[in-house]
Amino acid sequence: MSVTVQNSGLLTSVQDGGRIGYQQFGVSVSGVMDPRAMKVANILVGNEENEAVLECTMLGPQLHFDADNVIAITGGDLGPTLDHQPVENYAAFVVRAGQTLRFTALRSGCRAYIAFAGGLDVPLVMGSRSTYMKAGIGGVEGRKLQKDDVIGFRAPNPDVCNLAQRRVAPEVVPQREFTVRVLLGPQDDLFTDGGIRTFLSETYTVTNEFDRMGCRMDGPVIEHKNGGDIISDGIAFGAIQVPGAGKPIIMLADRQTTGGYTKIANVITVDYPIIGQLKGGDRVRFVETSIEAAQGELLAERAALQKLKTALGPARKREKKLFGLFGRKKEA
């Protein structure tokens, strides 16, 4: 009951909702770069939202299945095929034992997510299955996937109920210019008014120095009042760090827990999917929003995901009915 990695792709790793609770000890959160894509993929196959998935970067892996299961692929469109026949993104489908999943071309975004019904059988380390490569923990031996890795299914479910309905419109579309909403802070007061204006009005381009730790951008220099160094403090996902040179870096899933550079703003949670799908050459404009609006949007997104879950119904046949059946039998 597993998949065998026949080709690892560029950077494929096991990730989930992240390692929560250990930042105070210097342990990075890790987890997926596009949390919404992971959640939708998991909901489509009937998993808990934060179940571990495979995160595939730009060039996807080649995976051979030796057991039946239902999977769904979301996020960036990396051109998935099953036994060389194109398969749809954002739809759950059955893969039979003996079939091979491949990715053929990058059409949109940067990262695809593969959710497997019943989850992947890799050990929990500090409460998470996420791969944290710098410390060598989580996922498969704490590293990115490589050829001949075998990853087991925990509780495969090839008979997911309501399969035909388990699809949504693709959410990552081909696009190279983005508007990302931010909340100013925590160190916006260490920039000049002109620096803040530059940050909120100019366009910034993603350089080729982008990875799971951060995304380095190029564009007009953002002016500090007094240099870019601070006494180290905590760093959130989506923090926009501006070192002395004045060029922004968006801090991502594998960011270090603390850092000593000024952070001008933080991307809001509902826009994490945008920054998680950026690639070199993409252009970004930052616009300011309010904490009330940001939290309102986040709650609305959660409600929408809950609605989708409810509409799709349970992935396995209701146990309640079984009990009812046995109950009646007993009475008879």
Binding site: I20, Q23, Q24, I231, D233, G234, A236, I291, L299
Partner: peptide, 23 residues
């Protein structure tokens, strides 16, 4: 409250806005 991250001169407080708003 989800997670606390104390540093030299600040403490980061991670929380669930679905349970408690910023205000």
């Amino acid at each position: 409250l989800i997670e606390l991250v104390p540093t030299y001169r600040a403490c980061m407080v991670h929380y669930d806005p679905g349970v408690i708003t910023y205000a």
